[in-house]
Design a protein around this nucleic acid. Structure first.
Length: 926
DNA sequence: TTGCTGGAAATAAGG
DNA sequence: GCCCTTATTTCCAGC
């Protein structure tokens, strides 16, 4: 791991990010240690040390590097960095370090000869790196300090897309994945499996493996997730190249191990002949993504922190990247890359001989991480060949994205943070929703085009209230559509569409292993953008699930949402981040044809007595369709379930009339949020839609279905509770506080909600975030780590899990002492949640915020601290009750202590249905 | 020729 | 361990 040592970013001025990195990475710091692990905190905090900086060469990049190089560097750096950041968590310090080292080295190498090097490789990697990691990151950070964030255009540069290709290595491209799929995936596994890699880092493994073991193949694995980091990819990991080897390996490997030998493989092989042999990589793509979360959780990410960091980092990197215009990946359009890979490269790859060639290549293990990577490079192991493939000369030259220089701060909120859709005068709104079905394409397939609007055309997003003349950047990524908090989807990635039919400029970036499409929002267009450049890429379940830390299941997890974000620089120097998610989009082929889907509902709320007719609009409704209303406990158990009456005569494929059933508790004093879904059969259920029961004496509030709904004041409990979001469960947009400042508190210690439960590191979702890095970092650090890598049983920390994240100002705010953030760190949300603090956040919030009755999924209303607090306290009890209930006993009455308002409890017989499954499972159903 | 689709076969996963 | 059903992933073919 020697190598490891160096890269460390020199400066980590950044708070969070830095922390993340630093820590995560540890790398750098890690003194090389290879292996030495630091406590999360340490890492976070520690990383910053200047010493490190100095120590680190960051050569990468840094400053010294020419602009041109910059990109590369970035990439490289990113890579290195990333790992650390992101992954470190996951794997353990050791790993991280390793990885870091790994990358670093790579990076380091480059610096020198960088360019020379197979840039190709770099590119690939780079894309990852670019964003997030990279040493640059560090740099960026520094820079950032110096430079007004606002002015950077970074993202552009960085992102520039390379297409992301980055995602997949070229090598990977191959469908081959088949093998890989497993193997790869497994990468992690393999990793686990015992192969002893010198490095622990997962990432590393891949490489090594290449030759060595099948595992290797997996480039992907490492990749995505950890990589998420992506970052790395670039480098070493990139293994993709490796993969090639892998391929070699694969074969052997396969034979040996492949669990599923044939299947895909066969096909794939078949394809291989023609195509990409690399199979192993098949996952090539796998994009980076590994689900972020997973990643986070997983090895890769350090911890939530990481994410936090990562995002910040990314941002920073982006900013930096700005400088560099080059993007490794850039120039190459994804597809082109793909193609390229497939063809010639593939041949090469396929030949695998490489493998042989590689064969000779010492197992990764043999080399020190750094060396390892280098060696590959030097030797030109398969990688070289691979790389050598002259794919995109222009790659490097790729022009910067057209997008306006966005304002990017290194400290931008992590992608899994819950952000409001509007704040003060600003509102980010989806004017035209995407079609409810869009068949995502696999890497092995060609693009299936851009997501379209149901009425034809494409989705449209507009930022209202922005009167400045500076263009902004709209970020788009694929998010989840389940009941939990919105977060990047582990199994889907946004895919940039280009061509004659695309009128919107965009470029891809990879943040924390999540592809992000950046689209310019121009004042001349009224800050409105038509999203005709976004397709959806499906990653193989096997590739993602095998990653360490991945907690989500791909099977039946085929719904996504388009998530849009915009970061608005404020006069105060802070950045206001807004986010809005689209209606859910069913991405599978089958589902689109069979599963019922509710797009709109005529009512979002109604008094408990029910009886009103509600019209549901959507698809695949049948006369036999049933509409089931469900009240869930925080832990996902069904507290109440009722089949609503439907009017068969009025049932049409696209509309269904249902009578709102009376709520079980007619005495509620505050709105209770429940959900309902349309069921066409055993396994054919629509996604849950939100519905709010109002107290009998409360005047009915007209609700608008869908996206348009605008919560009054998000902050207040009232809004939360009441807010009848027309949106489906999934809609998790946070309502923004009426006034930007109202809910923000500098210090805001937020509940670590997610962090506790979710793998993902990101913990709090800040609404405004301060650019200042310092503080930021700290906060991050703590929390992040907590979870990463760990998958939590849904049941365990019910409340915490989905508890909405409060909006908050970035920890980074100068005012805030890092300490404040700490709460986030705490592993357990429940305990950790600083209620008091939260409350402080929203002054407006009513004193006794009655959280919506128990049912409400925490996730829905993240905003109010009170709410969170309440959840933390109140919800636990319920779960218990439920658990006690026998699973089978479906409707069963138990004295329930229900708290409508949070204060008054009424004992009411409750029908309890025990739901053994987690939310996830529920979602998956069956 | 490339990209986008729709369909469906081949496999894998679950029950 | 086998069979059946369902879900996933890869291929094909047409426009």
């Amino acid at each position: 791991m020697p190598s490891t040592s160096f890269p460390v970013p020199s400066k980590f001025p950044l708070g969070p990010q830095a922390a993340a990195f630093g820590s995560g990475e540890t790398l750098g710091p890690a003194p090389p240690a290879s292996g030495t692990m630091k406590s999360a905190e340490e890492e976070h905090y520690s990383y910053a040390p200047p010493s490190i900086g100095s120590a680190l060469p960051l050569p990468t990049g840094h400053p010294s590097l020419p602009a041109a190089c910059h990109d590369l560097q970035t990439a490289a750096a990113g890579i290195s960095a990333m790992p650390a950041a992101s992954h470190s968590a996951g794997y353990g310090a050791a790993v991280d370090s390793a990885s870091s080292g790994y990358f670093l080295s790579a990076g380091g190498i480059r610096p020198d000869g960088a360019p020379a090097l197979e840039s190709p490789r770099i590119e690939i990697t780079s894309y990852l790196g670019l964003h997030h990691n990279s040493g640059q990151f560090f740099h960026d950070v520094e820079v950032e300090d110096v430079i007004p964030s606002a002015k950077r255009s970074p993202s552009t540069a960085t992102l520039s897309l390379p297409g992301l290709e980055a995602y997949r290595d070229p090598a990977c491209l191959s469908p081959a994945s088949s093998l890989s799929s497993r193997s790869c995936n497994s990468e992690a596994s393999s990793y686990e499996s015992n192969y002893s890699y010198p490095y622990t880092s997962p990432q590393t493994s891949p490489w090594q493996s290449p030759c060595v073991s099948p595992k290797t193949t997996d480039p992907e694995e490492g990749f995505p997730r950890g990589l998420g980091a992506c970052t790395l990819l670039g480098s070493p990991r990139h293994s993709p190249c490796t993969s090639p080897c892998a391929s070699v390996t694969e074969d052997s490997w396969l034979g040996a191990r492949s669990s599923r030998p044939a299947s895909p493989c066969n096909k794939r092989k078949h394809s291989l002949n023609g195509r990409a042999p690399c199979s192993p990589r098949h996952s090539p793509t796998p994009s980076p993504h590994g689900s972020p979360r997973a990643s986070v959780t997983g090895d890769t990410w350090l911890g939530s922190t990481t994410q936090y960091t990562s995002s910040a980092i990314v941002a920073a990197i982006n900013a930096l990247s700005t400088d560099g215009s080059l993007d490794p990946g850039d120039g190459v359009p994804v597809k082109s890359r793909k193609t390229g890979l497939e063809h010639s490269p593939s041949a090469a790859l396929k030949v695998e001989p490489a493998g042989e060639d590689l064969g000779p290549t010492p197992p990764a293990s043999d080399f020190p991480p750094e060396d390892f990577s280098f060696q590959h490079i030097r030797k030109g192991g398969f990688c070289d060949q691979y790389l050598s493939v002259p794919q995109h000369p222009y790659q490097w030259a790729k022009p910067k994205s057209l997008a306006p220089a966005p304002y990017l701060s290194p400290s931008l909120p992590a992608l899994d943070w819950q952000l409001p859709s509007h704040s003060g005068p600003y509102e980010l709104r989806i004017e035209v929703q995407p079609k409810s079905h869009h068949r995502a394409h696999y890497e092995t397939e060609g693009s299936r085009g851009a997501v379209k609007a149901s009425a034809g055309g494409h989705p449209v997003v507009q930022l209202h209230g922005y009167l400045e003349s500076e263009p902004l950047t709209l970020q788009l990524f694929i998010g989840t559509a389940d009941d939990r908090l919105l977060r990047p989807h582990a199994f889907y990635q946004v895919h940039r569409i280009t061509g004659k039919t695309v009128s919107t400029t965009s470029h891809e970036a990879v943040l924390c292993s999540t592809k992000v499409l950046e689209i310019p929002l121009l004042p001349e267009n009224n800050m409105r953008a038509t999203i005709d450049c976004a397709g959806i890429l499906k990653l193989r379940n096997s590739d993602i699930e095998l990653r360490k830390g991945e907690t989500d299941i791909g099977r039946k997890n085929t719904r996504v949402r388009l998530v849009f974000r915009v970061h608005i620089p404020q006069p105060s120097g802070r950045t206001l981040s807004l986010q809005v998610a689209s209606n859910p989009i069913e991405c599978s082929q089958r589902s689109a044809q069979e599963l019922p889907l509710v797009e709109k509902q005529s009512a979002d709320s109604y008094p408990v007595m029910g009886g009103k007719k509600m019209v549901l609009s959507g698809h695949n409704f049948l006369q036999d369709s049933k509409v089931i209303f469900v009240e869930k406990a925080p832990d996902g158990h069904h507290v109440w379930e009722m089949e609503a009456k439907t009017d068969r005569d009025l049932c049409k494929p696209n509309s269904l009339v249902v009578e709102i059933p009376p709520f079980r508790n007619q005495r509620i004093t505050s709105p209770v949020q429940v959900s309902f879904y349309v069921c066409n059969g055993k396994r054919k259920r629509s996604q849950h839609q939100h519905f709010t029961y109002l107290p009998a004496n409360v005047p009915v509030i007209k609700t608008e279905p869908s996206d348009d709904y605008e919560p009054a004041a998000a902050c207040g409990p009232a809004s939360q509770g009441l807010s009848p979001l027309p949106r489906p469960y999934y809609s998790q947009q946070l309502a923004a506080p009426p006034d930007p400042g109202s809910c923000l508190v500098a210090g805001f210690p937020l509940c670590p909600q997610r962090s506790a439960v979710m793998p993902s590191p990101r913990s709090a979702s800040p609404k405004l975030h301060d650019l200042s890095s310092a503080v930021y970092s700290k906060g991050i650090a703590g929390p992040a780590h907590c979870h990463l890598g760990l998958a939590q049983p849904a049941g365990e920390v019910p409340a915490a899990q989905d508890v909405p994240r409060p909006l908050a100002v970035h920890p980074g705010s100068p005012q805030q002492p890092p300490a404040v953030l700490q709460p986030q760190v705490s592993p357990r949300p429940s305990s950790s949640c600083p209620l008091g603090g939260q409350r402080t956040l929203c002054p407006d919030s009513p004193p006794a915020p009655p959280p919506p009755a128990t049912q409400e999924p925490p996730c829905l209303q993240p905003c109010s601290p009170a709410h969170l607090a309440a959840m933390g306290r109140q919800q636990h009890p319920l779960p218990k009750v439920h658990r006690d209930a026998s699973p089978t006993a479906r409707p069963r009455s138990l004295p329930e202590v229900r708290e409508d308002s949070g204060r008054n409890l009424a004992l009411i017989p409750v029908t309890v249905k025990r739901e053994p499954e987690d939310l996830d499972q529920l979602y998956l159903d069956d």
